[in-house]
Nucleic acid binder design. Sequence first.
DNA 1: TCTGGGGTCCTAGGACCC
DNA 2: TCTGGGGTCCTAGGACCC
Length: 412
Amino acid sequence: MRTIFHVDMDAFFVSVEELFDPSLKGKPVVVGGRPDERGVVAAASYEARKFGVRSAMPLRVAARLCPQAIFLPGHPERYHEYSERVRRILCEFSPVVEMASIDEACMDMTGTERLFGPPLAAAHRLHEEVRRRTGLNCSIGIAVSRLVAKVASDLAKPNGILWVLPGSEARFLAPLEVGRIPGVGKVTERRLHELGVRRVGDLAKLEDSFLEEQFGRWGLALAGKARGLDAGAWFDEEIGAEAPPKSLSHEHTFERDTADAELLEATLARLASMVARRLRDHGLFARTVEIKLRYHDFTTITRARTLDRATALDAELLAEARRLFREHWQRGRAVRLLGVGTTNLQPHEGQLSLLEEPRRERWRRALAAADRVRDRYGDDAVELGSALEGLWRERAHENPARRPSRGGSRGS
DNA sequence: TCTGGGGTCCTAGGACCC
DNA sequence: TCTGGGGTCCTAGGACCC
């Protein structure tokens, strides 16, 4: 029988902000951006939540609900640093720790009784250690499976510990609303409601075959979960397995929708460069390049193409992204969001012809040098010509005076 | 109310191969 | 000439998570 801890930081981004500015404590705080920006709430303090402000809510809505709230853009580097500090503490309690996201972790505490005592005592020690060394509060759920531990930590919030005794999983879950089950979002919840299913207990009573009919394979897992079984669905996978990413992407929502081809293509170049950089950081090469376009009315399309050979070069990524963009953007139609993504990632490029090899080798060396400069002087230190050359040529053609010159390009 | 950015997983149809 | 079944890959879209 396993003992799983699910550790969830309380109002993580807001709490980190409070460490750096204690005057924020006790006030309604919203992290995510300015109240008039296009964007959503990344985190809200408990005071702000009293006004109905929630994560993922548009900032403008949050501002209407709670005009006196303090809106902060946030400090991602700080959050990563504190996330890492928490991870190191957790690793002192168990060798099997997996950060499920920046502010939550799952750990296997099976067999640690002799070191830290029974689960509840261990959880209290862990909770105190995190608070003492980071100044942050967390909530801990304890159960025999990852799923139940996660639901328990959710219910323990804020700043609590909840242990679901082995054997009582079904009884614990039964009175909860179906939306509490990880993986049941708005759509599935609504469909379940339409079937007259509101609580996990109602779900547990349904026939497996009926759920499979209604929800496919996911329905079967759902049935198992409702009864507290470990059905082996995606969220109950092995803890701590470090897998390489399966996709890498960047996207950008414009402050104002735009149909300006130059702006769009320059943005495409910037996004492609960022993705290529991250591919190289991971030592990966992408075979499939994808673009994403969201128009003014929120209709969204993705268009992808798989290459003969994988790449991590800015120029090749951009060339493909640009082809897709030119083929599929309805010229003149205002764009809200633009994205560049890669999938089909692999650790090698694949076969190269002898003719191409020297050219690519030169590029590889140039990009490695540029990456090193960026590491030292920041991402703005080098702008690769490959990313913008096509655009420059076009601009120069229309109006030579507009060719951008990046004054005093530090370090390059 | 007006909807971010970065991911994972699933489904479904069509192409293609054996 | 009319027709199998299985497997894999590709593409597009969507649900969901934090």
